[in-house]
Amino acid sequence: MSNSEELERALARYVGAEIGPPAVGPDLVNAPMVRHWCEILGDANPVYTDPDVAARSVHGGLVAPPTMLQVWTMAGVALAGGGGPAADLQQELHALLSEHGYTSVVATNCEQVYDRYLRPDDRVTATTVIEAISPEKTTGLGTGRFIDTRTTYRDAKGERVAWMTFRVLKFKPAQPAQAASPAAAPAKPRRLRPLRSHDNDWWWQGVARGDLLIQRCAECGTLRHPPRPMCGACQSLRWDSVAASGRGVVYSHVVMHHPPIPGYGFPLAVALVELEEGTRIVSNVVGCAPDAVRIGMPVQLEMQDVDEELRLPLFRPVSGAAEEAR
């Protein structure tokens, strides 16, 4: 029998199994823990923290935020321990997959359905079943297996108060070079840099000085953008440049939604701006909602340092234009 068949058989034994005895919440649902949660998350809903308002609310008294569901039975500091023998079947399963090279884990999905909000002094008990283990799948992170668990939460009377399904990917990390993640990258992604060459460096130097330049043929005066070394009208290699006034109108535009590319901020308005000098340039429109950009909208140049190293000529609707376009 091959190694992989052996693993499949071993995994099959976990499917459908309860991971261990029910987890009993070490604390009753209580106001201090709820207050700490609301404070750090900035949740100002008074039904969680103000007994008087809560009493007049649809709940008739204080309740805990339903999304705190998992908190009541979390293992706490024990989670920081690591190592040691597996405490339940779920840990045992993870250890088995780690042995087979699926060393990393990431949570991918979580669904919670609440039968009722928990109240102070509720005692929560959780029972977890391993519902499914997928065959090996290829993902952006690496090849791995999805593990689905289902946890049922009950109160002291044994009545169900909520259930949750949780999906994790246990995976073999892809080679670092192909990992499209923040791994080993700066905390904040940045826009892609333009490459510089003989033919465009002077233009970016203009931007650094605060000028939006337009290349001009020194023989026939034809303006051209994007820059190129020869004039297509008269084949002259002599050229200079003029600074654009910065006034223009939107000739066409798009709103980027998908895929969200790190470093830009989506949705993102990109426009083809026709400058009053007659050339066109692709840029972003800032200062209005992306979906408020319209063809024909008057815009004005705005030089912006988008990060420590990159300055870009961007455009902003001239005042009132965004409202008029609507």
Binding site: N200, P226, H253, V254, I295
Partner: peptide, 27 residues
């Protein structure tokens, strides 16, 4: 160098380039 006129502004995907023509065509 050609793509460098578009990279910094996020106009990075085939859909985005075609969309730019499309918007004008619809208009």
């Amino acid at each position: 160098i050609h793509w460098s006129w578009y990279l910094p502004y996020g106009l990075l995907t085939p859909a985005s380039w075609v969309a730019m023509f499309t918007q004008r065509y619809l208009h």
